[in-house]
Write a protein that binds this DNA or RNA. Structure first.
Length: 256
DNA sequence: AATTATTTCAACCGCTATAGA
DNA sequence: ATCTATAGCGGTTGAAATAAT
């Protein structure tokens, strides 16, 4: 499913090669600016597309398919409370992206919820015809909430024990130039090395492809940041052909 | 086995919020 | 105050997979 290019940017399904490039780059440098990152990572996609691919598919410990009953229950309940606030719901389901939760809701749970709603309505009709005692509905809601809170906690604990680095890498920064690199993640073995020569050689040890957290990772961004700290605007950096060609040609760490 | 209909879900699009110039 | 760039969100689309005929 490879769609046409738009403004030189590829669209459609991601290839393994693209995935590997993006994953490898972010594992090393984090994401500091999606629009620029695509250039450095060597991926011919829009920043928006890269961000989406990372968030929904590539980031560490992301889960796919096979929603558990507990997860479904949480989605159903939170959707009942929050509506289509997918990202808010996703914060309570570790390892699940908002997109996947949205899909889960639209393809499975919406119908289920509608059915249950009808059943509840019928029950309510019967109940109101009987007595109007001390609101039993409230007790049901409280019990459900307690159960769901417990389920959320269990999922959170499980997730944090399995994935110590999941959300510390790539946390959004208030500054687009403030790029995050997790020391946890740099300890992970890489399943792919970025092919473009300008970033790999100085950073990855020969024997095991694992980066020492004590090493200074001198990235192309260092050059850009330095450039900016010397009074150049972001646009000027982007427009500077010399800078780009220097980055492309660089085989060794930059020295100032 | 071939065709058509339906479902799934990855990816896109348009929009809003926010930060910085 | 206004403009621009970026990140993030939610709705929607459409290719691929699967089911039904």
């Amino acid at each position: 499913m490879v769609k046409s290019k738009k403004n030189g940017m590829k669209k459609g399904a991601w290839s393994d090669d693209e995935d590997n490039k993006l994953r490898a780059y972010i594992n090393i440098y984090g994401h500091w600016n999606w629009a620029l990152l695509t250039k450095f990572a060597g991926v011919s996609r829009s920043g928006k597309s890269c961000r989406l691919r990372w968030v929904n598919y590539l980031r560490p410990n992301i889960k796919h398919g096979n929603f558990t009953e507990a997860e479904d229950n949480i989605i159903m309940d939170l959707h009942n409370k929050l509506g289509n606030k997918w990202s808010a719901i996703a914060t309570n389901l570790p390892g699940r992206s908002d997109n996947e939760i949205k899909n889960r809701w639209n393809t499975h749970l919406k119908r289920q919820a509608q059915k249950e709603h009808i059943v509840l309505e019928n029950q309510d009709d019967n109940e109101t015809n009987k007595v109007n005692e001390a609101n039993p509905q409230e007790n049901i809601v409280e019990t459900t909430n307690l159960k769901l809170l417990q389920e959320v906690e269990i999922l959170r604990e499980r997730s944090s024990s399995e994935s110590p680095s999941i959300d510390r890498l790539s946390s959004h920064s208030s500054s687009s130039w403030d790029y995050a690199v997790s020391s946890d993640v740099t300890q992970q073995p890489l399943d792919y090395e970025p092919t473009t020569n300008f970033w790999t050689d100085p950073f990855i040890s020969d024997d095991d492809n694992i980066i020492s957290s004590s090493d200074h990772l001198f990235t192309p961004m260092d050059l850009v940041v330095d450039y900016i700290s010397n009074g150049y605007s972001q646009d000027m950096v982007m427009a500077n052909e010399f800078l780009w060609s220097a980055l492309d040609l660089c085989n060794e760490p930059f020295l100032f």
